[in-house]
């Protein structure tokens, strides 16, 4: 199933019923998330993973995406100041 279907259905539902939805969505979201991450871990556990490589890759992505964002924010946002 395409991921856009539940996403757009949710947005439309949320927008139409925005005045009536009084429940806090944090709890169902947290439960769904924890289960999802558990299942993701199960799938990852079935594959041979090099933890050191994974760590290096994660930190590299994090640092470069942050630096890229800051550089472009300075470049594009600087003109607004």
């Amino acid at each position: 199933m395409n991921i856009f279907i539940p996403l757009i259905a949710g947005i439309v539902f949320g927008y139409i019923f925005r005045e009536r939805i009084k429940i806090n969505l944090d709890k169902p979201m947290s439960v769904a998330l924890l289960l999802l991450i558990f299942f993701m871990g199960v799938e990852a556990g079935r594959v041979e993973i090099n933890a050191a490589e994974l760590f290096v890759a994660s930190v590299t992505f994090a640092v470069l995406t942050i630096l890229g964002s800051l550089a472009f924010a300075m470049l594009m946002g600087g003109k607004l100041r």
């Binding site: 927008y15 979201m29 999802l36």
Partner: peptide
């Protein structure tokens, strides 16, 4: 989860 995220965005 995606549906709940959508609802949250929509409202």
């Amino acid at each position: 989860l995606i549906f709940i995220i959508g609802v949250d965005l929509g409202k």
